[in-house]
Design a binder for these strands. Sequence first.
DNA 1: GACTGACATGCAACTTTGTTGCAAAAAGTT
DNA 2: AACTTTTTGCAACAAAGTTGCATGTCAGTC
Lengths: 138, 138
Amino acid sequence: MEAQIDEILKKNQLSVTGSRKRILELFLMSNGALAHGDIEKKTGEKFDRVTVYRTLQTFLEKGIIHSIPTSDNSVLYALCKDDCTEGHHHDNHVHFICNKCGKTICLADVTVPEIKIPGGFLPQDYQMVVTGLCAECR
Amino acid sequence: MEAQIDEILKKNQLSVTGSRKRILELFLMSNGALAHGDIEKKTGEKFDRVTVYRTLQTFLEKGIIHSIPTSDNSVLYALCKDDCTEGHHHDNHVHFICNKCGKTICLADVTVPEIKIPGGFLPQDYQMVVTGLCAECR
DNA sequence: GACTGACATGCAACTTTGTTGCAAAAAGTT
DNA sequence: AACTTTTTGCAACAAAGTTGCATGTCAGTC
């Protein structure tokens, strides 16, 4: 785990610091998505609010994590797959949000279908969010 | 227009007030989606911030408008089609967000494809957002 | 059209969420 | 170990959203 975290940071030319290690660890442990608030709560008093914001920002820019749009407009982040590179994401799987427990799960095996868009529009990215009940809550 | 607005409000058992009429009018005029901020700006000094929040909340509950998830996590609202009823929305069209001008457009003709979800999950609602360049910006 | 109960609004105060500038601290480099 | 660059924490701020309560407005009834 330690080694994996270091590797990810170094691969992205980021210095290895306490907050980055801790936040990355949180993402690796939870196989769902995390809201900013979750991260703040789980790191407790350890890091400043601002640091969490900036760390997430950095991870986003480097393509380590991606953000997920939700219907209630909270901000969610999840780890990217390996083939995400800086700038452009290949994060074409569907996200599932449970209406009961609120957890967000990446359905890594379900790819977003490419749909037909009316002429005139130039689509660049497709995102799909399914809400409902997860296996534990139904 | 006047008559249409009154009808919508009465159909939903809402009293016809100045703010509701004005905000509903804004939605009817713009055929795209509106952010809370847009509405506040366009109504000017006329209504209190709180009133705008509460009016949108009410419209959401009654199924007059629906919220749209965006990639940058701002809150967007758009008018629902007629077959939206209180509680449950049948808002199964795709939303397009332009990366340049930021406008959100409802692609009313493009329906969200029903995809296969792994067993265990109980899907209730599908939402799809496409980002890219709109006709004017490309 | 005036009366009345129910609902909507405005105000104030507050919480939560996100941002910016800058000095101190820690990381990476030689 | 000394130096440079990056990251962090603090403080102050800005924006976004919420809550309680007194006042005002609406819809229905007489």
